[in-house]
Amino acid sequence: MATVASSKSITVTVNGTTYEREVPARKLLIHFLRDDLDLTGSHIGCDTGNCGACSVIVDGTLVKSCMMLAVQADGATIETVEGLAEDGELNELQRSFNEHHALQCGYCTPGMLMSATALLRANPSPSEQEIRKALQGNICRCTGYWNIIEAVKAVAK
């Protein structure tokens, strides 16, 4: 029978780099990414799972990393905002956010970009309504979302 333990050694691959770390069972994935791996691009904007600033892609699935324990990510492949640019060049979506003024303070942006990335992978030609639905789990307090929707629309095929 599997052992019950208060900490666990886990192996995760984040943006192509594999890490092995001992983590307490109670540590949330977002704290692990930010505090243990120094991947501070993903943010924390709430404590109830509403804001989406911590959104990352785990094994191809968009999740909020504040509602997942780090130990649950053992063996997983994780993508975060730090992995979006290629060789230091912004990708199309990132450029579109810049061109459409889809960010102001930039705090929600990493999560917003990950949600949009997941959407565009699953549905390269989303309608405006589909874009809104896909971004519903990400709160932005600066932009009112209109420019974010435009930025995503602009890269939709």
């Binding site: 930010r34 505090d35 120094d38 991947l39 501070t40 691009g41 993903s42 943010h43 924390i44 975060t80 905002v81 730090e82 979006l84 640019a85 912004l90 990132q94 956010f97 810049n98 061109e99 003024h101 960010l103 930039g106 705090y107 942006t109 990493p110 970009l113």
Partner: peptide
Amino acid sequence: VPRKEDKRLVQGEGLFVDDIK
């Protein structure tokens, strides 16, 4: 003019207080 700030922010390379250790 597109914002100069964005390049770091869209890459998660902004520096917010909780990022500092």
